[in-house]
């Protein structure tokens, strides 16, 4: 049991402490410049990276956001959990859209050689395009939507960036269905719909969920870029606003929040994925 605890508790904690220590060591701190009589003339930041807030400074500046996570003091001054919630809502919509579009495309790719030959090249070209490149196009597409343009543009960007892992993994999963299962469907003369729902989809589910998990990771990655550029309230929007407001501690707070939430989402999806893989 001791080595078990060492593995999942003590070693990770050690890692975190090491990084925090390194961070503290390179970060800047305030130092007062004094004149001949010992009067403080001005304050300046000294250290290896003077602009980088230290661990302690980050905590002091962030504690109100963490200790009152659901507070709403203003549009861009809310508790960190509240910001996270806004971001998650937007991600959920965009991600849902990605799955709705991506899964059928994946099935078509997996089932039809003609479809694959026709559309695979364009998919391979669109896949590596950065969210930062899609967002302006998204905003332009929904220019007529007025106030909603930002939201719709963000949704478009999240969907189009995050659907590719779902598309490709579903296609691989469909192609990997054992011939045995298809033979059963053929021998029993199952209808197309029955074959799809009783054989193809269940057989592909483990691959689909791998795709879903990777897609969720990307969707969460994109949200930050989307919020930064559209200025919506959310973790990403907060990060960008605080950069402009020169509150660098809050940038770090946002980064840690984004990382933690991303990590939790990935863990949750892994759990669901494992459930389907075990069958």
């Amino acid at each position: 049991m001791r080595s078990f605890k060492l593995d999942w508790l003590i070693l990770p904690l050690l890692g975190i402490l090491l990084v925090l220590g390194g961070w503290q060591a390179v970060s800047g701190r305030k130092a007062a410049r004094k004149d001949a009589e010992g009067k403080v003339v001005s304050e300046e930041r000294v250290g290896l990276i003077p602009a980088l807030p230290s661990v302690v400074e980050t905590w002091q500046a962030s504690r109100i956001y963490i200790l009152e996570p659901f507070a709403k003091r203003g549009e861009m001054d809310q508790g960190i959990a509240r910001f996270t919630w806004y971001s998650l809502l937007l991600v959920a919509k965009g991600y849902g859209l990605a799955l709705l579009i991506g899964t059928p495309i994946g099935f078509l790719l997996g089932l039809s050689k003609v479809f694959t030959k026709t559309f695979d090249p364009i998919i391979q070209i669109l896949r590596p395009v950065s969210p930062l490149a899609w967002l302006p196009l998204g905003l332009v597409l929904f220019l007529d939507a007025g106030k909603e343009a930002g939201t719709l543009g963000a949704l478009f960007t999240i969907a189009i960036c995050s659907m590719w892992p779902t598309v490709l993994n579903t296609a691989v999963g469909v192609r990997a269905i054992p011939q045995d299962y298809l033979n059963v469907a053929r021998v029993l003369k199952l209808s197309r719909t029955k074959t799809l729902f009783k054989v193809l989809i269940p057989a592909t589910l483990p691959y689909m969920f791998t795709g879903f998990r990777l897609s969720l990771g990307i969707a969460w990655l994109v949200i930050v870029a989307a919020e930064m550029l559209t200025g919506r309230p959310g973790v990403g929007g907060f990060l960008w606003q605080e950069y402009n407001a020169l509150v660098y501690e809050h940038i770090i707070l946002s980064i840690i929040t984004i990382g933690l939430v991303g990590f939790i989402l990935d863990r949750l999806m892994s759990l669901i994925e494992a459930r389907f893989k075990s069958i």
Partner: peptide
């Protein structure tokens, strides 16, 4: 192919996400 011929494959070819009963029912329903 058609269900007027019952095929027993070398590997049983059961669908792993269905119970034994459901596997048999798949054909019986047809």
């Amino acid at each position: 192919p058609g269900p007027d011929r019952g095929v027993v494959f070398q590997s049983p070819c059961l669908l792993p996400w269905m119970t034994a009963f459901e596997n048999v029912m798949l054909g019986v329903d047809q």
